[in-house]
Amino acid sequence: MRDGRREGLTSDLPADGDAGPKRRRAFILAHTRLLTPPHVPEIRLHLADEATELWERTEEELQEIGLPPPFWAFAWAGGQALARYILDRPELVAGKRVLDFASGSGLVAIAAAKAGAATVVATEIDAFAIDAIALNAAENAVTVEVRHADVLAAPPSDADLLLAGDVFYEKPMSEAVIAWLDTAYRAGANVLIGDPGRSYLPRDRLQALADYRVEVTRALEDSEIKHTTVWRLAAPGA
């Protein structure tokens, strides 16, 4: 460590964590590189080359100033499966208003835009994710509206299609998410979910649409290949 920082890590983030967009984007560009997710080679994203290294840097550097771990820097299995499903079936999104919940890197939102959605909104509570999504959308020459907000605290979206990848890993979060998605579903929205079998996946409300074997990094998951399913939210007991 040198001057309170991991040696070799450059960061101009202010000590209070109030990083502006230029500083956040500089950090993203400095600690990621353009890669294609294994299951979605049509899309290029700014991703962490070494998951463990960036995670350690985030915990030791960024977390000290109150910032969350860099979920935006990885192409998670559920998102890869959902993006693949959409790109292979563009009729699902063509001309539709799409919302990608907890978008992370923006992978699923970008896939929806590429598949011909009329509008795409990507929501996130992490300011770094918001800037990563903007960078990734520009890299793929698509238009995605990025919304920095906790949408679970707001009325349900009026989107035609709601997308959610890898969101059922924590019980309180999962309960809030399924309640919010259910409200949108009851209002007429189609809801698709990508998930590799997270602990709190509400299987009793879901219909399986497609299965994939998605390559991931063992630094993030418990195996290098995750059996991942795309689900549709359905009525209780359907």
Rank of each mutant, 00 (worst) to 15 (best):
V146C: 09
A176Q: 13
L92T: 02
A219C: 07
A81V: 10
A137M: 07
G106Y: 00
V98L: 02
S11W: 03
A30S: 11
D182C: 05
S11V: 05
A149T: 12
E139V: 08
D3R: 13
N140P: 09
T228P: 01
L162S: 05
A30I: 03
S103H: 02
Y200W: 09
P90T: 14
A137C: 08
D49Y: 11
G17V: 08
F101M: 03
E42R: 05
G78Q: 02
F101K: 01
L209C: 10
L209N: 01
T228V: 11
V120I: 11
L152Q: 13
L92K: 06
L54D: 02
E50C: 09
V121R: 00
P38V: 14
V216A: 05
T36F: 07
A189W: 00
E215W: 12
A19H: 04
P68Y: 06
H148E: 07
L67C: 05
R203Y: 09
A129E: 01
E56D: 15
P68R: 02
D160E: 15
A234G: 14
L107M: 00
V230N: 04
A94G: 13
V142F: 05
R5A: 15
R2F: 13
L87F: 10
W72Q: 06
L13A: 07
A234S: 15
L107A: 03
Y185R: 15
K226L: 15
S223C: 08
P21L: 10
A134P: 00
A48Q: 04
L67N: 02
A219V: 12
A159Q: 00
P37L: 06
T123S: 02
S174E: 07
H148V: 09
D166W: 04
G4Y: 09
G4C: 11
E56A: 13
E145R: 08
T229P: 04
H227V: 14
L13F: 10
V121A: 00
E175F: 08
V191P: 04
E175S: 10
A219K: 12
T119W: 04
W231K: 02
V191D: 03
D12P: 07
A208S: 14
D211K: 00
S157L: 12
E61C: 13
L181D: 01
R147H: 13
D204F: 06
G165Q: 05
G17F: 11
H46L: 10
E124T: 12
G66Q: 10
G197R: 12
G106W: 00
F128C: 06
P196K: 01
T58Y: 09
R25V: 10
A189L: 10
D166N: 04
T217L: 12
R218P: 06
A208H: 02
P90A: 13
R84H: 10
N140Q: 11
W231Y: 15
E59A: 04
D204M: 06
E50G: 06
R25F: 01
D16H: 14
G104I: 07
E7C: 05
K22A: 15
K96A: 15
Y85H: 15
E124C: 03
P196M: 08
F128E: 00
E221D: 11
E224T: 13
D88H: 09
L62K: 04
F168C: 01
A176N: 11
